[in-house]
Nucleic acid binder design. Structure first.
Length: 945
RNA sequence: GGGCGGUUAGCUCAGUUGGUUAGAGCGCCUGCCUUACAAGCAGGAAGUCGGGGGUUCGAGUCCCUCACUGCCCA
């Protein structure tokens, strides 16, 4: 690759190319290990939380994927056998809604199409639009194994779903029954508790009089019992009124009956301790078909359940005169009618929580219907812990570790209070429940292979259940199903997923990659998905023997060993991004503007565990500048490499791939930057180990900009003069360190900024790199013994001297370009360092001459540190007043410091109890402050004089 | 109602088992087109660590309390 890079970094010019290259070259494919495979490192397995096929990439995805990509690239480069599996979710309701909307625009509906045609239509939609989000991911350069891409309704995943369902059914853990479920009248399906979002809502509490039937029977007496309700329309389905048995107010009514207003139905008064005497009137109407508590009451008291609404929440035939009305229309009419009949005792304002459908925000109607449930707290047939018990144990016993740790509590709290999971949905898009109803004996046949006869009466009059499974049932199985469970022994009937497989190897993936190493996701799907994977993963994996045939422990049954929960991406004002607010940042747009690398770096540098990210493009601008900085550092380096080549000097390229080291002859800046590189590598590795993306990113940023560019590159300009009298050996050595450190820095940065580093890395190798991609090169590792404290200490002296001179120059108004002589007074050690590195000081501080002295010339403005005094020989043009003020302020600060130190040092308790190094440190600090204070006082005196 | 977080510079955030003078980026002020980079360089200003109390030789860090704020569950 030619070294003539454009002056400004243009991400768009290179990113598409590399994104396409990584996919085309299949660089991140992790093939199924063969038995005779050479050892390829400990696996690092991670599943992509599958986006909905209907999805478009949003900032949350980008954060999630950036974090996973950083970790995966880092682990891969560090020698792990990294596998990242991508895929998409069929997303039952979301996708069905999308296609239904399309149909509506065409003036038709799924009902008109019929089930089969509708399913075809959704598949067609999926084929056409379903890959959009994956294409966006490809553009982001995520290092997934595209050869393993799945869709949750792929054949082999459907087999897993079916096997799981059948097995759970056989274990007595799946049952069907009529229960109160959350019903969405718009989606016309049951939804799980998790899919209901509660909103505070200002409503009313209506008090209704139910007439007591007189002992004589027949017409009502003038006695009433008053009940309160927020949903008066449900009274059409009332089958009782309940009171507390000890409630004195109603003792005289025990055993009496009531006449249900409007419906003229006789209903009993029942006694139940569940009733709260304090709430409302202490009497509650009981509608078993439309309220979960009432349903429980109904069960206890053998009441009938009258469902008064249809699936669209219109009153049905059971609602008598109100039949056909929408529930809210019926509510108004019922209230009006009651009022007319004098049965409305009152209306009170009432704030209560109303459940809405997570998907379409329609008010959810609790409704009695026949659904399928997974019994999570029940022992399976044959005994053993329940599904929830296993899922609790896995986390309690730390077989799964959460970061941040607090989510462990959240998870356990939820899992310990979990109810049975309603897994059926009245949709057409999804995994159809493998159960058949017999028209003859009414029993259910559940089977792995579509049956032709009823398993109970052998009748042929069987029809398949029309419901499909909750989407999360299939995604909850992914950790096992993507590795070919349950087809682990080459069972017939299942085609191999990929050509490189043979039937004997069917379980090779599972053996190699299960449990996965890590799950990275947002807390919003902690219960929906994470918890379900733990439940189902532990449940089914524990039945899979280990490769050696031994039973699998809980520790090896978990779907993942670690969970990293990331934050929410908000807008710059910390507001949640939402379409209605119009503050949504489209990652693709922002990527176009600033480059993928800059956006990734922004997210990484702000991804401190547990803190939401307020995404601010100002940060991204800064990281685009960072990319540009690196780009230009590369231009500078290449320019010099070319210049050196003309003089017949070439860096030792064979030394490039490892970690640089220097010998004692090397110049200070070389020893120092190499030491800093090792220190940074150590810090980055440690930070990533703890998911501290922010720490890792900041460490690299500081190293590359603050150390490498600002200091090292500036100093190397001294060494990069290639002429006749150049010492070739020294020049070669220095040039080698320069290229070496840069090359290693690119590798260090690569997981964070894969595009830029890929481009420059290829350029470093002149287009002939030792691997197809920097992502396959070795990650800088840590070896703290390589950190050179002497070099760091010496460099610090040089830096402080330079910084001191620069500040002084500014203070006394030396023009930028002018070079000036300086006086330095210091101890022997520092003097030796300064003398040896005189050329560095002269160049970086624009100094013409360094004069060492025992006493700074009187009258010069000087800069003092505990270690040295430095002064610039220049006609001073200083503002005496400002200078005096500054010194006074500094003196006060040092005095305060000394006072504080003295107070502590005279405290015998401190001396006795504080560790010695703290005491020694404080003494040293006090002495230094004292020395500085003396100097400052002298300065102030001379200013006055 | 139950539970879990957060409050540190103008803004967005770091700050490890309590330990020597609390950091970064952006923004702000001053001066520089110093031959890699003005998307740059150099210098600088800026914080009673939400209030109060306590533990400790020592608290941004631990405990209590109040205030404000966010989220989850019911």
């Amino acid at each position: 690759m030619p070294h003539d890079l454009p002056k400004a970094y243009d991400p768009t010019a290179i990113e598409d190319h590399w994104a396409e290259y990584w996919v085309r070259e299949n660089l991140f494919a992790q093939p199924t290990p063969k038995a005779d495979d050479p050892h390829r490192g400990e696996p690092f397995t991670i599943l992509l939380p599958p986006p909905n096929v209907t999805g478009r990439l949003h900032m949350g995805h980008m954060l999630n994927q950036t974090e996973m990509d950083i970790l995966t690239r880092w682990r891969r480069m560090s020698g792990r056998r990294a596998l990242w599996v991508p895929g998409t979710d069929h997303a039952g309701i979301a996708t069905q809604m999308m296609v239904e909307r399309q149909l509506a625009e065409e003036g038709t509906s799924r009902q008109q199409l019929g089930r089969k045609a509708f399913e075809e239509r959704v598949w067609a939609w999926k084929r056409h639009y379903g890959g959009a989000i994956l294409d966006q991911m490809k553009r982001l350069g995520v290092s997934v194994d595209w050869s393993r891409e799945y869709f949750t309704m792929d054949e082999h995943l459907s087999v897993a779903v079916r096997e799981a369902f059948v097995r759970l059914y056989e274990q007595g853990l799946i049952y069907r029954g009529a229960y109160i479920v959350n019903w969405c009248p718009r989606c016309q399906t049951a939804i799980s508790d998790l899919e209901v979002v509660h909103d505070e809502h200002k409503g009313h509490l209506w008090e209704i009089r139910y007439p007591v039937i007189s002992p004589a029977g027949g017409s009502s007496s003038d006695q009433f019992i008053t009940v309160a309700t927020t949903r008066p329309e449900t009274m059409l389905g009332d089958t009782a009124v309940a009171i507390h048995p000890e409630d004195e107010r109603y003792k005289h009514l025990h055993g009496k009956k009531l006449r249900l207003p409007l419906m003229n139905r006789e209903i009993p008064i029942i006694l139940d301790e569940w009733v709260s005497r304090e709430f409302g009137t202490g009497a509650v109407k009981v509608t078993p078909a439309h309220d979960p508590n009432d349903f429980a009451l109904g069960q206890r008291h053998h009441l009938s359940s009258i469902n008064v609404m249809d699936e669209t929440a219109h009153i049905n035939a059971e609602g008598g005169p109100y039949a056909g009305l929408d529930r809210f229309v019926a509510r108004k009419k019922i209230v009006a009618d009651l009022e007319e009949q004098g049965l409305l005792a009152g209306i009170k304002d009432h704030v209560h929580n109303v459940g809405h459908c997570d998907r379409c925000k329609t008010v959810v109607e609790p409704r009695l219907s026949a659904q399928w449930f997974l019994a999570v707290n029940k022992e399976p047939e044959g005994g053993g812990p329940s599904i929830a018990a296993k899922a609790i144990a896995a986390v309690k016993e730390e077989k799964i570790r959460f970061t941040p740790e607090m989510y462990k509590k959240t998870y356990l709290n939820w899992m310990e209070n979990i109810y049975d999971w309603c897994i059926s949905r009245q949709l057409w898009w999804g995994h159809r429940i493998p159960a058949w109803h017999c028209a003859v004996c009414r029993k259910i046949t559940v089977a792995r292979v579509d049956p032709t006869h009823c398993a109970h009466c052998n009748s042929e009059q069987i029809t398949q259940e029309t419901d499909v499974l909750d989407t999360w049932f299939s995604s909850g199985l992914l950790p096992v199903s993507v590795f070919n469970w349950p087809n682990l022994s080459g069972a017939p009937g299942l085609p191999p997923r990929r050509e490189i497989w043979d039937s004997k190897a069917d379980r090779a993936d599972f053996d190699a990659f299960y449990p996965t190493s890590l799950l990275v996701t947002g807390f919003d799907i902690l219960f929906f998905w994470v918890a379900r994977m733990i439940m189902l993963g532990c449940w089914f994996a524990s039945d899979v023997p280990m490769p050696d045939g031994s039973p699998r422990s809980l520790a090896d049954s978990v779907p993942f060993r670690e969970v990293y929960i990331h934050a929410l991406v908000r807008d710059a004002n910390r507001e949640k991004m939402s379409k209605t607010k119009g503050n949504v940042i489209d990652p693709i747009e922002i990527v176009k503007q600033y480059g993928t690398d800059a956006v990734r770096f922004t997210l990484a540098s702000m991804a401190s565990p547990g803190t939401d990210i307020a995404f601010n493009v100002a940060r991204t601008e800064g990281y685009r500048a960072f990319a540009n900085k690196i780009w230009n550092a590369a231009r500078f380096i290449f320019m010099n490499v070319d210049k050196a080549a003309e003089a017949g000097i070439f860096p030792h390229r064979e030394l490039l791939r490892g970690m640089p080291a220097t010998d004692e002859d090397a110049p200070l800046e070389a020893q120092w930057i190499v030491s800093e590189l090792w220190a940074t590598a150590a810090r980055v590795n440690q930070s990533l180990e703890q998911y501290r993306f922010d720490d890792a990113a900041n460490a690299i940023y500081q190293f590359i900009w603050g150390s490498f560019c600002d200091w090292y590159l500036e100093i190397t300009k001294l060494r990069l003069e290639f002429g006749e009298e150049t010492n070739k050996a020294a020049a070669t050595r220095d040039l080698t360190v320069l290229v070496q450190v840069f090359e290693a820095s690119l590798r260090l940065l690569s997981p964070f900024m894969p595009f830029l580093t890929e481009e420059l890395w290829h350029a470093v190798y002149d287009g002939k790199p030792p691997a197809k991609s920097i992502a396959l090169a070795k990650y800088p590792f840590e070896d703290e013994s390589m950190i050179d404290a002497n070099a760091v200490g010496a460099m610090e002296v040089v830096q402080e001297l330079i910084t001191g001179v620069r500040a002084l120059r500014k203070e006394i108004g030396v023009e930028e370009k002018a070079t000036v002589p300086i006086e330095v007074r210091t101890d022997a050690t520092s003097r030796k360092i300064a003398e040896k590195n005189r050329d560095i000081i002269e160049r970086l501080a624009r100094v013409s001459e360094v004069l060492f002295t025992d006493q700074i010339t009187v009258g010069l403005s000087k800069h003092s540190t505990p270690a040295f005094d430095v002064a610039v020989l220049y006609e001073r043009k200083i503002d005496v007043e400002a200078e005096r003020e500054k010194k006074t302020k500094e003196i006060a600060k040092q005095e305060q410091l000394i006072a504080n130190a003295d107070r502590q040092l005279s405290n015998s308790a401190f001396l006795a109890k504080a560790p010695p190094h703290i005491v020694a440190g404080l003494k040293k600090q006090r002495d230094e402050a004292q020395r500085l204070l003396d100097k400052l006082r002298d300065d102030l005196d001379s200013l006055s004089g």
